[in-house]
Write a protein that binds this DNA or RNA. Structure first.
Lengths: 195, 195
DNA sequence: TTCATAAATGAATGAACATTCATTTATATT
DNA sequence: AATATAAATGAATGTTCATTCATTTATGAA
């Protein structure tokens, strides 16, 4: 029998992400995707049940890749400052390595296409909550509701990353996110959160 | 001659935003919009040149409403703490008054549909930059690149607002954004930014 | 009340859409 | 080399799409 060509599935996935990021959901169709991936439209249906399934698979995979990146070298037992800085670096690196992923996620997050209930609660979330409660227990943080901690700890990072992603399209502006600049922002965040 | 029915344009605009927020771009079509607004598809084309023009008009209007809300009672000469808190309150109120708008904008921001170059640089942006440079001049802030100031000052607010918008769909969670909670987060931000 | 005119329409058009299916093609096993 | 089988296909299906247009409707001005 003929064997499955793994490269085809990879091509479908990559081109799909590329297209959605570049043209939005509006410009995305199965026939255009097939053309971009140099296959027949029918081939897509060998690898994915249908359009919705394809989009869900992309979402889930991208979410997993993010989790893995974010947890690289991370341990919830780390001190607050050490652990949070590693999170900043990991997440920044992730967005540099997969610049399409954050744009893809932005298109998706508020979209009703993904059945959010299906997405399993990851070890990622558990690790983050453990890390937070450890830091409180050790008295490293002023006591805070989790959502306020979260907002102060990561809100600035994401705003910076978004600036960084956008700069390519803003001709005049010159803004590049160096590790030194991130560190400056990080130090302010620590100043806000530390006891 | 027959007169223009203003209510029709309003209905078109409101239903369009509603549909896009509820079903995403995927679920949005001129014929469905016509049905939802109780008019003929052809009528939409009396008020908007075409689909792209309609979406652009929505984007521009929503952006203007946001600017107006944000600048209500604001003066770039305000002290840093007073001015920033007013911004937080104004922006929060805005998202409470127009909960659809932030969701609409999220669908749009990274979308290639809107020709971002066409959108005029608003007095909004000028006022914000003035406010920032005043605060530096007066020595109220540690000296910072604008993008870091921006990230620390507003990143946490938007993360909080997003939590708040999401909570409706997260059955189990109970999180409501009170002014007291906002004030707690705000105080931490001030702690980070003040000299 | 009549007339002129712009608003509003429903039906029609051709293009693009997601998906299916009868064939063809490649390959692992024999 | 022959066979069996799953991969891969291009063309076709019926649906929905954005947009247009000939016609009808409502209303301010006469």
């Amino acid at each position: 029998m003929r064997t499955r060509d793994e490269a085809k599935e990879v091509a479908i996935r990559e081109k799909a992400i590329e297209m959605i990021v570049k043209e939005g959901f509006d410009g995305f169709s199965m026939q255009k995707l097939a053309k971009a991936a140099n296959i027949s439209p029918a081939t897509i249906y060998l690898y994915f049940k249908n359009r919705e399934d394809l989009l869900n698979q992309l979402y889930i995979t991208i979410d997993e890749v993010f989790s893995d990146s974010s947890l690289r070298g991370f341990d919830p037992e780390m001190t607050f400052e050490e652990g949070l800085w590693l999170q900043w670096k990991n997440r920044f690196d992730h967005h540099v390595n997969y610049p399409n992923h954050i744009l893809f996620m932005e298109q998706f997050r508020s979209s009703p296409l993904v059945d959010h209930k299906d997405i399993k609660i990851t070890k990622f979330k558990a690790a983050m909550e453990q890390f937070f409660s450890n830091a409180i227990k050790r008295g490293e943080l002023t006591e805070l509701p989790l959502e306020i901690f979260w907002a102060i700890a990561y809100g600035p990072l994401y705003t910076l990353i978004k600036f960084h992603m956008l700069k390519k399209s803003l001709a005049g502006r010159k803004f590049s996110l160096t590790e030194a600049k991130m560190r400056d922002a990080f130090n302010l965040v620590v100043k806000a959160l530390k006891k």
